[in-house]
Structures are given as C-alpha cells and as structure tokens.
C-alpha cells in the first residue's frame, strides 16, 4: 500500500540479494554522477566475466556483480547515475533509498576529476547519510590532459573519507580502490566525514528533532540526516520511514495514507 513501485523494486532486490546462493561477505553500493565512468569502474572491479544481474524497477535498472579481494567476496551494486540524492526523480529516489535503507556495508562514489566541484555535491550528500563512504576520483588521466590536477590527500583530509584517484579505463587505481573498500567494510578504518553546517535556524531545528528521531529509529539511521530530511519534508522519504517503522513492527495496524510516491501521469489524471 504505502510501498511505491520503486521501493518495492528495491526491497525485492534486497531480498534476492540475501537469498543469493553465493553469500557475499559484504554489499557495496556504487554511486556517482552520470558520465563519470561509473560503469567502467563497475566492470573494472567485477570483471566482465562476472555475473551481472539486471534488476529492472519501473524506470530503473540496478546491476550487481561480484569480486574477491583478500579472500572476501564482495557484491557490488551499481546505482543509477544521479547528480543528487534529493529525490527529484525516480533514479535519485532509488539511489537514496538503497544507500539509506539498503544498508550497504560501504558506498563508493565515483567522481569526475575534470569537474570535481559538481561531483562533490553528491559526495557531500552521501556522507551525510553514511560515514562508510569511499570517494573514487576517476578520469584523472583526462583531467591531466586538460591540465587539471586534483590533490587527493588534501581532499581526503577535507572530506574525512578515503579518496582514491583512478583511471578506470586503463585499470589504474582499481586495486587501491578495492583495498580502500576492504578497510572501510571490515572496520580497519573509521571515517570521520566532514559535517555540513547549515545556517543557525536550520541547525537549531535539527537539534530539536534529532532526539526524537534517535528514540524512534533506535540509532538505525543517521539521526542528523533523518531530522534534516524531515525538515526538508521530502514526501517519498517520509513514506519510506513510515514503511520502515511498520516493517519493524509487523503487528502494527496499517494506517491510511495518501500515495505520495513518485507519481505517474495516471495518478495525476485522478486529480480531475
């Protein structure tokens, strides 16, 4: 009822993931802007011979693949390419829901070194949700040709998460990326991601809401982020939160709610 077509897709996908015959040691999400070479990174990590499953949602395709590193099996989930996670489109909603509710063991954000600033928007939004984030600065070779240089160690200090430079097309930096993922997933490295500070008025309200969020979700999600999103009033996320609480208490009485998911034209037509 409350589940939108997209979120159903995600949960069904997650269920299949957990039932998969080869149990992976960890699930890692792969996010990034469109055209950053995300798919090249995905293929480079999993290898083309690996099984890649296509998971069609309504408009959305999630692909998964596996690789082994240091004797651990990692399942990589390729999220749709998006510029943000503010759920303006079905793609963004799927990416956000997976990072937030899919509970991946780590999230890799692939960024384009030639236009880092725009890509950082997404990175900042991901580290607001989860500290277990790794940034892969891809296309460093192309950036070099364009005489653009990215200071990755400095970026690492600014963001508080591991930053790996890569040129995925030439398989440069992929081993480093696997290593960085390994460290984050298996707790060998604790990230302290940079916190984005909003203006005082917003910060004050976040502080007020945060306590109640912590109590309700029992530390399951980043309470600061949830408080911010509630304040932002994203209806799709509020719905997901409701669903989450309902799933946690299966005996709960289902309550009526308006369908506030990503709407198709059919639903808009009903407004006549």
């Amino acid at each position: 009822m409350g589940l939108t077509a997209q979120s159903t897709g995600i949960y069904a996908f997650l269920e299949e993931l957990s039932r998969s015959p080869v149990k992976a040691d960890a699930v890692v999400a792969l996010a990034g802007n469109p055209n950053t070479g995300k798919s090249t990174v995905f293929n480079g990590l999993t290898g083309l011979n690996q099984h890649t499953g296509n998971w069609p949602g309504k408009t959305v395709v999630l692909a998964k693949g596996n690789y082994r590193h240091r004797n651990k099996s990692i399942t990589l989930v390729d999220l749709p390419g998006t510029y943000s996670l503010l759920a303006n489109s079905a793609d963004e909603q799927v990416a956000r829901d997976f990072i937030c509710f899919g509970d991946p063991d780590a999230t890799v954000v692939v960024a384009d070194a030639t236009c880092l600033e725009r890509n950082l928007n997404l990175v900042l939004q991901v580290i607001e949700i989860t500290p277990k984030t790794i940034l892969c600065v891809n296309l460093v070779d192309e950036a070099k040709r364009k005489r653009i240089e990215v200071d990755c160690p400095k970026l690492e200090r600014s963001l508080g998460i591991p930053v790996v430079p890569a040129a995925a097309r030439d398989k440069v930096g992929l081993t480093d990326l696997k290593e960085a993922i390994h460290k984050v997933v298996f707790g060998k490295q604790r990230n302290r991601p940079k916190r984005i500070v909003y203006n005082q008025a917003i910060e004050a309200v976040i502080g007020e809401l945060q306590g109640e969020v912590k109590r309700l979700f029992q530390g399951k999600f980043n309470s600061r982020w949830v408080a911010l999103r509630l304040l932002d009033g994203d209806p799709t996320l509020v719905n997901e939160m409701r669903n989450y609480l309902q799933r946690r208490q299966p005996k709960a009485e289902p309550f009526l709610e308006k369908g506030e998911g990503v709407k198709g034209f059919e639903q808009l037509s009903n407004r006549f």
């Binding site: 950082l120 970026l155 600014s158």
Partner: peptide, 16 residues
C-alpha cells in the same frame, strides 16, 4: 549550503 561547501573544497584541492 551543499553547493557552497562543494565549491570551497574544490577551490582548495583542484588546480587548474
């Protein structure tokens, strides 16, 4: 706020 932050970080780490 996100854009400002991204811009500030990019200014620090990107040399063009």
């Amino acid at each position: 706020a996100l854009y400002r932050e991204a811009q500030q970080i990019a200014e620090k780490v990107v040399k063009k």
